[in-house]
Design a protein around this nucleic acid. Structure first.
Lengths: 230, 230
DNA sequence: CATCATTGTCTCAGTTTGTGACAATAGTAA
DNA sequence: TTACTATTGTCACAAACTGAGACAATGATG
């Protein structure tokens, strides 16, 4: 990461949502030998579109290319500047700031994005600086560096606000899913239980779903239809 | 504007909304001797909060201090980089880039905000580089530099989306206003006519208004109540 | 074939919204 | 003083939408 390759003072952070075992989860990285946890983030190349930089980072971590991605806020408080945290990260990886990494200790403004992906499609990959990149339920996050906790809170709030307006819930599921699975996603995002019949009626009335064949789970009850988003 | 005072590659642009004569309007600056029109914008000082930088800029242009301000998107495409436009602006003002202004010809990422202010409270002030800072109806904007047209479009869209959710319409009016004036603001923002009785019922049911004395305009009809937001 | 959990759909009541009606008001004109 | 007019605040009714439960159909099990 030589200094010349990236725009200084500008970073991005991504809140990558997945859904499994009934929980809304996000990807969190742990840095080598530090016990420090952070959102996956990165920098923007000198001639690269901001959005493309984020997609590039997501692809490196998840292997996915077609990702539902939305920018939601840019965090620009001076107080989010904490060179000691970055110094710790670099030193734990045997990097001397003097060797062209001084710029990483500067103040950064961070553009935050959230992504919705199908949990099953992903095997999280750590990067050079991190031990691990793992799913954590949003209610059981470790302590995060800097203001990353606030970034997550705001991501969840934005996701909730957009849930009905943009009908984005389906991006957290496989292409085909049952109505019950979709309802579970909504409940995990909103943090509340929903009424089955009302939910079903609303989704069908929205005319955004295509109904496919039935899905036989082997359980002893009526088989539900599979749906996909139009 | 010596280079050391500002973060490089980072700017902000502001879409400042006002309401008068039945139209939604925004403030547009015209640069000296160029015929170029642009949104009011600026840069962030090295130790300044991003939000504070925007408030500082708004205060310089409008004289106002308590301003309803909302960040809505960060524009980061490489294609918005056009050094010729900036060079024209500087040269028209007799500034040589070599004299410490080279950084203004670099690529910028711009964080966009919109503000809602009471038209009557403002006497727009041009800055050192601009001839004028004037109100334009959103439907009669001049051609704007770079991607400023898109920024305006997105600001209006965000304002529409937030109108009911955040009940922000009142920020475009004096403290006290009639129900009809408030409805006119809504209609200007949404670009559609609304039904009088439905609008009145919805606003009163929201329990966000305080009813004050009647307002006698001198016209030959029933005088409306004045309202203010709680 | 009886049992059981789950699903798709329907019904009914309660609430919200679209639409027009109507009396009250504050001026103007006779 | 008395019509007359434009506008306002409120109400009434119908239409649309939502919450809550009922119920038959289904797909396995034993």
């Amino acid at each position: 990461m030589p200094q010349t390759a990236y725009l200084p003072h500008i970073a991005y952070d991504s809140v990558i949502f997945g859904f499994s075992e009934g929980d809304l989860k996000i990807l969190i990285m742990e840095y080598h030998n530090t016990g420090l946890f952070a959102l996956p983030g990165g920098f923007v190349q000198l001639q690269e579109n901001l959005n493309d930089a984020v997609l590039r980072g997501l692809n490196e971590r998840t292997g996915l290319t077609d990702i539902y991605l939305e920018q939601f806020y840019t965090f620009g408080d001076f107080s989010r500047f904490d060179p000691e945290v970055m110094r710790t990260l670099l030193e734990a990886n045997g990097i001397r700031p003097d060797d062209g990494y001084q710029w990483m200790l500067d103040r950064f403004i961070s553009v935050a994005y959230y992504a919705l992906i199908n949990y099953e499609d992903v095997t999280p990959r750590p990067d050079a600086l991190s031990d691990s990149c793992e799913w954590y339920p949003v209610n059981e996050l470790p302590e995060l560096i800097l203001d990353h906790r606030q970034i997550v809170e705001r991501a969840i709030q934005t996701l909730r606000d957009n849930l009905d307006r943009k009908l984005v819930g389906g991006n957290l599921l496989p292409k085909k899913f049952t109505m019950n699975e979709l309802q579970n996603v909504y409940e995990a995002i909103l943090g509340t239980k929903l009424r089955r019949t009302t939910f079903q009626r609303k989704m069908l009335a929205a005319e955004v779903l295509t109904r496919h064949e039935k899905h036989f789970s082997g359980k002893a009850h009526m088989a539900p239809y599979l749906y996909s988003f139009k």
